[in-house]
Amino acid sequence: MNDIRTIALIAGVLLLLTVATAVGQFLARQPDRGLDPAAVNAFNLRLRGWWIICTVLAAAFWLGTTTTVVLCGLVSFWALREFITLTPTRKGDHRALFWVFFLFTPLHYVLVAYDRYDLFSVFLPLYGTLFVLARVAMAGDYKRFLERTAKIQAGLVVCVYCLSFAAALLHVKIRGQEPGSGANFRLLFFLILLVQFADCMQYVWSRMAGRRPVAPEVSSTRTWEGLLGSATSTALLAAVLWWAAPPFEPWQAALVGFVVAVMGFAGGMTMSAIKRDRGVKDYGTLVVGHGGVLDRVDSMCFAAPVFYHLTVLVAGQ
């Protein structure tokens, strides 16, 4: 992965983070500028979280494909933990949940690690679903049966299945590139960057120009203006950075950026709806200032499969 583009991309991100950190520290030392100190504080905490995330990611990239897949698996595991913790389950779901956590999730990632697209693309949505239905039925508790099994399935698909497509990017065969080379890592990096940027832009555009919330009952801060602004800005960024993502032409990169932003927005809305229903704000307290793991990866969960399939479509031409 020691090629010039990868290094340029990493250096760019480091520079961006350094500048943002410097600005954040500067703002924190200017109490009488009329800035909201809570917002500055939130910004700085968020940056600290990003430093942690970037460090872990860089370490995984450096250690290779399998390590990155394992890391992604651990993130899935933790996200699923948060998801099921906030979802009321009954005692009859206990055994099914045990196998979901300790057999289905790891096995799915083993299939991803061995690049068995033929199996991992159907394993969870098909066999995972069948297992959950049958095991919960056999536990003998039929109360709200469909509702309970649907909850477990939704958790599996969103937290494990969808997220694993990010890891699966490392195995995509790109014309003219060695499989598992720096090009694949750049693709993954590109996706993470776009998703994070889209999240950020959504927040900024909603704050600056947001007037009409998409669904005020679910989230008052996610607006049509935010969605449109974030999708356009992300498309622009993707077009500028097209050289980093191997199979894409600039216009294709822009389209991918647009779609990633829209999907990320959809993921955020979905998780907001679940959180609203459960009456909580954040999913956990693992990384300071960053809600929980699920709060960080919700947009990624929705964007990763689309990004994966668009990449395969373009790279397979």
């Binding site: 913790t85 389950t89 005692k91 206990h94 045990f98 956590f101």
Partner: peptide, 18 residues
């Protein structure tokens, strides 16, 4: 809080919730 869902009475396999 929540430990009864991780290892309820009568179960011996834990579910790793928070």
């Amino acid at each position: 809080d929540n430990l009864n869902r991780i290892l309820p009475r009568g179960e011996f396999l834990p579910v790793p919730l928070l």
